[in-house]
Write a protein that binds this DNA or RNA. Structure first.
Lengths: 161, 161
DNA sequence: CGCATATAGTAAGCAAGCTTATTATATGCT
DNA sequence: AGCATATAATAAGCTTGCTTACTATATGCG
C-alpha cells in the first residue's frame, strides 16, 4: 500500500474532487448554492428549455438525482418547470430572473476556487489534466453502460448447473 | 459556457470521480463494499491500531464521516474498535480476519476499474495526472483550513458600521 | 381499437460527506 | 484541588448520488 501522498489514482481523484467541492461550498455559503446546484444552473443556462431527461443526460447523472436538485432549485426560486405544449409527460426547464445574477457570482467563485486548487500547476500540466480527465470521463460513461464483469459465485454456480 | 465536452475543470473532476466511484461500486456489489469503505480498509491495513482521529486525518475527511463508515464496517464484521489501554476517549481500530481476504479482491477490482478508466491514456499522461492531482489535493487541504474569502454583506456592514 | 413497449418523471431507501452541536474524558495551569 | 481548555467520539440534519420500483403518458404494431 502506498503512503497517502502516493495514493492510487482512484483514491486521489476522489479526494481531489471531494476537497474541491468542499472548498467551493465553503466559499459559496453566502450564495446559498451547492456545487451540484451550480453545475445544474450552469448547464441549464446553455440549454434553456431542455427537458429533465435531456439535462440528466448532459450531466451524466441519473434522472432521480436531477429531480432532487431541481426540487431544491425550484423551491429557492432559481428555476421553473413548465409543461410541454403537446407531451404531458415532459417538463421544460427555465432559469428565473432571480437566478441570472447568481450565475455571474458563482462563476467567479468557481474561477477563484480553481485558481486556489491549481497553484503551482503549469499551463501545460493544466492542459494535460483537462484532456486526460475528459478521456477518463468518456471511458467511464461507456464502462458504466456495460454489465459489471464480476464473479458472482451464485451466478457461476447456476450457470455451471 | 463551454460545451459539456469542454466543461470547466471543477465539473470535469467531479464527474470523473463520481463515475469512477459508480463503476467501482457496480463491480464491487458482490463484495458488499462501497468505494469509501474500501478506501478506509486500505488505509487501515497500512495503519493497524491507529485511532479514529488519526485515520480521519490521514483520509482528509471529517471525523463524523469516518464514524459513519466505521459503524458500517464494524456492523458487517470487517473492523473492530478496541479501547485504548490508558485513554478512555480513544478507540483503536483493527481489521478482522474476515476483512483480509476481501482486501485482495477489492484491490484487484480497483486495478481493473482503473484500467477501464485509463484506456487510451499514455504512461506519461498517467504520471502527469497523478502528480497534478496530488498537488491539487495538497493545495485544497490547505485552502480548506483558511477562512472563506467571500463577501458577506452582513459582515461587511458590521465591519464598516 | 387494443395492447405491449417505451419514455418521463418521481417515491423510497441507503450511503457518504459536510456543518453544527453535544457528551465524555484528558491536560495543564493556578 | 479546581477549573478552563483541549481532544475524541458521536448525534442530528441536510445534500447528493445511486438502486429499485412505481405511476402517468406516448408510441407503434397487429
Amino acid at each position: 500500500m502506498n503512503t497517502p501522498s502516493q495514493a492510487p489514482l482512484g483514491f486521489l481523484l476522489h479526494d481531489a474532487a471531494r476537497l474541491l467541492r468542499k472548498r467551493f461550498e465553503q466559499q459559496a455559503r453566502h450564495l446559498g448554492l451547492t456545487r451540484s446546484q451550480w453545475q445544474v444552473l450552469a448547464y441549464l443556462s446553455s440549454n434553456e428549455g431542455i427537458h429533465q431527461g435531456g439535462l440528466a443526460e448532459l450531466l451524466d447523472i441519473e434522472p432521480i438525482t436531477l429531480v432532487r436538485l431541481l426540487d431544491k432549485l425550484e423551491a429557492i426560486g432559481l428555476i421553473e418547470r413548465r409543461p410541454h405544449p403537446t407531451d404531458r409527460r415532459v417538463r421544460l426547464l427555465h432559469l428565473t430572473d432571480k437566478a441570472r445574477p447568481l450565475l455571474g457570482s458563482a462563476r467567479k467563485l468557481g474561477d477563484a476556487t480553481r485558481a486556489e486548487a491549481l497553484q503551482g500547476v503549469s499551463a501545460a500540466d493544466r492542459e494535460t489534466l483537462v484532456r486526460v480527465l475528459g478521456l477518463i470521463k468518456c471511458n467511464l460513461v461507456e464502462a458504466c453502460e456495460r454489465p459489471a464483469a464480476f464473479h458472482d459465485s451464485q451466478r457461476d454456480s447456476a450457470e455451471n448447473g
